[in-house]
Design a protein around this nucleic acid. Sequence first.
DNA 1: ATCGGAAGTCAACAACTGTTGGCCAACGGC
DNA 2: GCCGTTGGCCAACAGTTGTTGACTTCCGAT
Lengths: 194, 194
Amino acid sequence: MTMSGPPRRSDATRAEILRAARVRFAADGYQRATIRTIAADAGIDPSMVMRYYGNKANLFATAVDIDLGLPDLTGVPKRRLGSALVAHFLRRWEGDPGDRALLVLLRSAATDETAADHLRTMFREQVAPVVETVVADPAEAAERAGLVAAQLLGLALCRHILCLPALVALTPAELVARVGPTVQRYLTAPLPPS
Amino acid sequence: MTMSGPPRRSDATRAEILRAARVRFAADGYQRATIRTIAADAGIDPSMVMRYYGNKANLFATAVDIDLGLPDLTGVPKRRLGSALVAHFLRRWEGDPGDRALLVLLRSAATDETAADHLRTMFREQVAPVVETVVADPAEAAERAGLVAAQLLGLALCRHILCLPALVALTPAELVARVGPTVQRYLTAPLPPS
DNA sequence: ATCGGAAGTCAACAACTGTTGGCCAACGGC
DNA sequence: GCCGTTGGCCAACAGTTGTTGACTTCCGAT
């Protein structure tokens, strides 16, 4: 991730562009965010964005290449797995703007196939493996992880992107109390026959 | 909804435009769908779209002005409320293309504030009232409806827009069996204290 | 002091967008 | 058959977009 060559004089500008890009992509999504507005936010010329990141798609890919930072769940008591997961994601996307990278991806993934692909990869490489470590039958891991993702992404969508008032009104603690048991059930309850 | 004046000779074209618009908006979202591609799909000139629908925003509003067709839940046994709701929504958005209007809205709402507003209105005027008829304490109706919306929209997002393989693989019947109990709990389980 | 390259600015191109107005053809009541 | 109305197409405008290349300015090593 941090495979830096020799430190360059322009590192500050590069970082500033990336910060502005994350904010803009998060606010507007891939298509509506323009190189020009991102450059304006960063206080530099649009052509610098091209020079440092090649093109818009690559800038987006760089801005979105993040780590969910999922905790190691093997030490968590089995009854608290759901609450722990919900609490972690809430902490993750309620943080300061610029670090809400998951929302960047979510907003763009609805209309941009590249972003959707990033999200699927993130699910496959980060969420599914963690779920596999806490699930009884590994054969069911993918399905359970999918159900968990649907619940958590649905919550992020309704609370932070659609901003449904009924969900914005709830505190993080209340959300953990309400959604935690659902995730818990998706992780541990026996799957009903089809 | 069908407040038609005298039947015009161009009704067929108008309908064809609307059909093509729904398909395109569903596939690409508001911004990426262009008047030109919609017109091409409908086999007519872009200027006709303008003549019949005024502008792109109005065309979108018309294409998206739909009825969820939520069933009357007052006759459903209280234990089956969750399954009934999940089954209804699954039927609604697994149908033939052109009738998947909810997905049109969902895809665009992530990046377009107008679409998001439509979705909030639909939630407030269609989902919340129905939930209110089946909930014990009316004061909790909005919150319960919000949780239900988060779960159902999350499912639609992951299955039909992100196309997570783990969720695409499940049959509608399996999904009802897995997600139904969650919705049931959001509707009827006592809300934990904050 | 000077020279090379990096950092940054400016102006422009080509493609695409929503939108407009003018023009032609077909229809239908008189 | 005549003519106004309607349905439809074509070409163009104005704005925005990603992207490019030439030009200037600054800094650090020699």
